[in-house]
Deep mutational scan, measured.
Amino acid sequence: IINNLKLIREKKKISQSELAALLEVSRQTINGIEKNKYNPSLQLALKIAYYLNTPLEDIFQW
Score class of each variant (00 low, 15 high):
residue 10 E to P: 04
residue 11 K to R: 12
residue 55 P to S: 08
residue 18 E to Y: 09
residue 44 L to F: 09
residue 49 A to D: 00
residue 8 I to C: 07
residue 20 A to I: 02
residue 5 L to N: 02
residue 35 K to H: 14
residue 9 R to M: 06
residue 28 Q to C: 12
residue 40 P to V: 11
residue 3 N to T: 05
residue 12 K to M: 10
residue 50 Y to R: 08
residue 51 Y to H: 15
residue 46 L to K: 12
residue 54 T to M: 06
residue 35 K to Q: 15
residue 37 K to Y: 15
residue 49 A to V: 04
residue 53 N to K: 08
residue 61 Q to V: 13
residue 9 R to H: 00
residue 57 E to V: 08
residue 50 Y to H: 12
residue 19 L to H: 04
residue 29 T to M: 13
residue 2 I to M: 13
residue 19 L to M: 05
residue 31 N to W: 11
residue 59 I to L: 12
residue 34 E to M: 02
residue 10 E to I: 10
residue 60 F to E: 01
residue 45 A to H: 02
residue 39 N to H: 13
residue 43 Q to T: 10
residue 8 I to T: 06
residue 41 S to G: 12
residue 17 S to T: 12
residue 10 E to S: 07
residue 42 L to E: 07
residue 11 K to C: 09
residue 48 I to G: 00
residue 29 T to Q: 07
residue 7 L to I: 13
residue 51 Y to G: 05
residue 58 D to L: 13
residue 23 L to N: 01
residue 18 E to L: 07
residue 37 K to Q: 15
residue 2 I to W: 10
residue 42 L to S: 07
residue 45 A to R: 09
residue 31 N to V: 15
residue 29 T to S: 08
residue 24 E to D: 13
residue 4 N to W: 05
residue 27 R to Y: 10
residue 45 A to S: 08
residue 35 K to A: 15
residue 61 Q to K: 11
residue 40 P to A: 06
residue 31 N to M: 14
residue 60 F to L: 03
residue 52 L to Y: 01
residue 47 K to L: 07
residue 17 S to G: 13
residue 27 R to P: 15
residue 5 L to E: 00
residue 14 I to W: 05
residue 16 Q to V: 13
residue 22 L to G: 11
residue 42 L to Y: 14
residue 33 I to H: 01
residue 40 P to K: 01
residue 29 T to P: 02
residue 62 W to I: 13
residue 56 L to P: 06
residue 58 D to G: 04
residue 12 K to F: 04
residue 58 D to H: 10
residue 48 I to H: 00
residue 8 I to E: 05
residue 23 L to R: 00
residue 3 N to A: 04
residue 30 I to A: 00
residue 22 L to Q: 11
residue 43 Q to H: 13
residue 46 L to Y: 10
residue 50 Y to G: 07
residue 8 I to S: 04
residue 59 I to E: 00
residue 35 K to S: 14
residue 46 L to V: 10
residue 41 S to R: 06
residue 41 S to D: 09
residue 20 A to F: 01
residue 13 K to G: 15
residue 18 E to F: 07
residue 18 E to V: 09
residue 37 K to W: 15
residue 48 I to V: 06
residue 19 L to E: 00
residue 39 N to I: 13
residue 62 W to G: 09
residue 48 I to L: 07
residue 29 T to A: 09
residue 39 N to F: 11
residue 4 N to G: 04
residue 33 I to Y: 06
residue 36 N to D: 07
residue 32 G to S: 14
residue 8 I to Q: 06
residue 41 S to Q: 05
residue 36 N to L: 08
residue 45 A to P: 03
residue 14 I to P: 01
residue 48 I to D: 00
residue 44 L to A: 02
residue 45 A to V: 05
residue 32 G to P: 01
residue 58 D to S: 09
residue 30 I to M: 06
residue 28 Q to G: 14
residue 38 Y to T: 10
residue 26 S to I: 03
residue 21 A to S: 11
